[in-house]
């Protein structure tokens, strides 16, 4: 086939294409809604949800939501041949450092016992199993949208996608989770979000090549 012929065929296909943002909007809200529905049917909402959402425990839902949105921005920025991280990377970094500082401050004032005390709770196991399950659909929707991108580093872009999925999964799970202690939810949620980040990186390196 001649190159001129190929150009003619390509030019005929010049319809405007949906960008990554538009594709994310197409699949991700549905995925998050389905995860929330699953939580409602299988896990059930926490009994005192309304009280919790009007108390400082609201941060348990808001912080993962903010992290999820920032990570989505990061995933979008990393999905181009010339990546740009910029503001979303700063937001992700700031949220991560704030969480770390909160845990350190909690340990510094309450002692290490305050942290290990939570490790014996049975809700920890529920949390560890639930967040990846609730993140699975969002991760699929994010990677599906990202397959239309062209990331300079599929591994890094996949990690950002996994981070976003893990954070959104944690946000959904927080509507069930009865534990409001900072030293419970930051280490538990944080660890599972990092697990999803690693999974996203692994999948991204395979699925996002172009």
């Amino acid at each position: 086939m001649k190159t001129d012929a190929l150009i003619a065929a390509l030019a005929t296909d010049a319809r405007p294409q949906a960008g990554l943002g538009a594709r994310l909007l197409r699949g991700l809200p549905l995925a998050v809604a389905l995860s929330a529905l699953a939580l409602l049917l299988v896990w059930s909402l926490r009994a005192d949800l309304l009280a919790a959402l009007t108390s400082p425990a609201l941060v348990k839902t808001l912080a993962p939501a903010a992290l999820g949105l920032s990570a989505l921005g990061l995933a979008r920025g990393l999905s181009a041949p010339l990546p740009r991280a910029g503001v979303p990377a700063l937001l992700v970094g700031a949220l991560g450092l704030t969480a770390l500082a909160a845990v350190l401050w909690g340990v510094a004032t309450g002692g290490l016992g305050a942290l290990t005390m939570h490790a014996e709770k049975p809700t920890l196991l529920t949390c560890i199993v639930s967040i990846p399950l609730l993140s699975a659909l969002p991760l699929a929707a994010i990677l599906w949208a990202m397959r239309h991108g062209a990331p300079a580093s599929p591994l890094a872009a996949g990690a950002a996608g996994g981070l976003a999925a893990g954070a959104l999964g944690a946000m959904v799970y927080s509507l069930h989770c009865p534990e409001d202690a900072v030293l419970f939810f930051i280490p538990a949620y944080g660890t599972m979000i990092l697990v999803m980040t690693a999974l996203g990186a692994l999948l991204g390196a395979r699925l996002l090549r172009w």
């Binding site: 150009i7 390509l10 999905s79 181009a80 041949p81 010339l82 300079a152 172009w210």
Partner: peptide
């Protein structure tokens, strides 16, 4: 390369020059 440029053209952001994007792809 041309086929890839075609399929990935929406990853170019209109506010930056085209040439560096083209070279990267």
């Amino acid at each position: 390369v041309l086929l890839t440029i075609h399929l990935k053209r929406q990853t170019w952001h209109e506010d930056v020059p085209l040439r560096p994007w083209l070279y990267a792809v």
